[in-house]
Design a protein around this nucleic acid. Structure first.
Lengths: 348, 348
DNA sequence: CTGAAAGCGCTTACAG
DNA sequence: CTGAAAGCGCTTACAG
């Protein structure tokens, strides 16, 4: 019923092979031939059948994206970025939300969609360095997004946790704040990124000649708004003194900011705040939240490119690790008038 | 290189046809035959090649979901629900975020992924009744999610806008509040749902014997937090008197609530608030937001079932319109102790 | 540059 | 119940 390459061949007067050459953009074609074939394609409304093409080529043109869920802003925005990057390379994305927990993550690696996709981008929270063997055993091309190193055994894209955190802290210190609270969380196993961001925080203190005060490091019991709010409530009750906050992610920052404001603390006059992630909503909070933009666009692009390279190159290829740069997004919560600061790009 | 049905036939000692029968669960098979084939499948680790199956059957097992974007909480949660519903029917979902604007929406109907999907679920903001012809012209099976009626020409799933809004308003009135502000927005062309919700609001007033006061209907200039905040700021400045707010969506409610609290208004003591959508974050706001749960789970399930019916039944089938029910989710912002109220289910 | 033919892995009438 | 064969629409050596 639908138009096939055969119809195009018949109408254009050329062979199937020639039509195929036109479709696939082979260079050695007489312009006139190309033109006539294209006219026939246009006239018939021909579109290649992807199932057939895939059957032949062994590819599907679809990549998988494994994330915990789509309702957390962070992952929704990550998915959005990956879809855009994939679209640019003509790929479609099949999202597999797997819920939280280590078992789910492991199960996803053997998921049912594996046979529909050419490769998988896998945003992992719970896998650790000791799982490198496991990941190598996966026969689907795989790129991991995450902060845990797998000793160069798996393709991985990561964000500038340490340098981004350092820049955020330095920005607060540069404004004259000397008591910068570090607000982190333990929940889940995202510990890797918390450690890296803490390291950046300490680097900034050191560079400024300030000593590290463990009392200024606070752990919320979740990475969400509520966790940030609860932690800040406790800190205020305890009477801790500080004039700036570097929260390890935006939702912690938003929760903490909320509690500070309810307590009559002015932001940024009394306490300046910077978050991490640059979620869309940070632009709309009151005041707008300063934050570290981890360049999800670049992460997504690097992930897609790396996956494509792996799909084409096969398992023998050496694993690649890429760390993208960051952008310090200065908004109202930490000053306002300052310009954004660019981060350095480093790769391993 | 990979295991094919042929290998299974060889190892099991049966013909390809018999193996195929086992895979596709045909009933007329000797248990022993089935067992031996299944053993061979197990032993070889055979998995059907979907491209081949799709080429043969003309199906892909993938459905498309067209939404404006994935970074808006509402659509992220909708996408999540659709993926769950699809997974239950063995389908994968290809999300196509198309940005906002009528042109993008129209373009998406002819999108490049159309040939990879068996059908499309389309969450439309800007299409109107006059576009029914256009939608009928789409040759891909299509189910629309939205509040605009297409005169029964297109399969459509919609939520209980009017009865949900009525229940929300009645809940506020039942608590003794007599000046209930209706907070809506104009932006985009989501006007259809705004009108339906306003109708529910008016029904509730009427049923309670109260007259409708146009001054209590307020339009923000966007459906987002910021719009709700700006509108509420203006209302407070104008000195409008009210003791309850029914916001037409959750983000408007959250923005308004924020401004009220900053102005020292206690919630729910001074002003009770109810939103619409039951976004995940409403559970974590301070206070937790009461809201109308539009049962995205049911909407998604109905959409997938209806699409499957259309895919199998073809274009001759009569179009189906389904309105799902709702659940009033009473939380802290409007009282707290009250139980949730179930909505009636109606279908056209 | 172009044509005829094989084959990707599967399902499904058609015969037994 | 089961087997041999055709064909879904495409790409790609292989010959010209």
């Amino acid at each position: 019923m639908s138009v096939t390459i055969r119809d195009v061949a018949r109408v254009s007067g050329f062979s199937i092979k020639t039509v195929s050459n036109v479709i696939n953009g082979h260079p050695q074609l007489r312009p006139e031939t190309r033109k006539r074939v294209e006219d026939a394609i246009e006239q018939l409304g021909y579109r290649p059948n992807l199932s057939a093409r895939n059957l032949r080529s062994g590819r599907s043109g679809v990549i998988g994206l494994i994330i915990p869920d789509l309702t957390t802003a962070y992952f929704a925005e990550l998915a959005d970025a990956v879809m855009r990057a994939a679209a640019e390379r003509g790929l479609a994305v099949l999202i597999e939300p797997i819920g939280s927990g280590r078992e789910n993550e492991l199960a996803a690696l053997r998921g049912q969609h594996r046979h529909m996709v050419d490769g998988v981008i896998y945003s992992s929270l719970t896998l650790g360095a000791s799982d490198a063997e496991l990941l190598k055993g996966v026969d689907t091309p795989l790129v991991v997004l995450g902060d845990t190193s797998f000793d160069g055994q798996v393709d991985r894209i990561t964000m500038a946790n340490t340098s981004g955190a350092r820049a955020a802290t330095e920005h607060l210190l540069a404004a004259g704040r000397r008591r910068v609270l570090a607000l982190a969380a333990h929940e889940g196993d995202i510990v890797a990124s918390a450690e890296l961001r803490l390291a950046g925080y300490r680097e900034a203190l050191e560079a400024a000649g300030l000593s590290f005060d463990p009392n200024l490091v606070c752990y919320a019991d979740s990475w969400h708004r509520r966790g940030g709010a609860a932690a800040m409530t406790k800190l205020l009750k305890d009477g801790l003194s500080f004039n700036a906050v570097f929260a390890f992610n935006d939702t912690l920052a938003l929760g903490a900011m909320r509690v500070l404001q309810e307590a009559g603390v002015r932001i940024p006059e009394d306490v300046a705040i910077v978050g991490f992630d640059d979620l869309d909503e940070t632009r709309y909070s009151l005041p707008a939240l300063s934050t570290v933009n981890p360049r999800r666009d670049k992460i997504a692009k690097a992930a897609v490119e790396t996956l494509l390279r792996r799909i084409e190159g096969g398992a023998e290829l050496d694993a690649r690790e890429i760390e993208t740069d960051f952008l310090l997004q200065v908004r109202e919560s930490s000053g306002g008038a300052l310009k954004g600061v660019s981060g350095a790009n480093s790769a391993a």
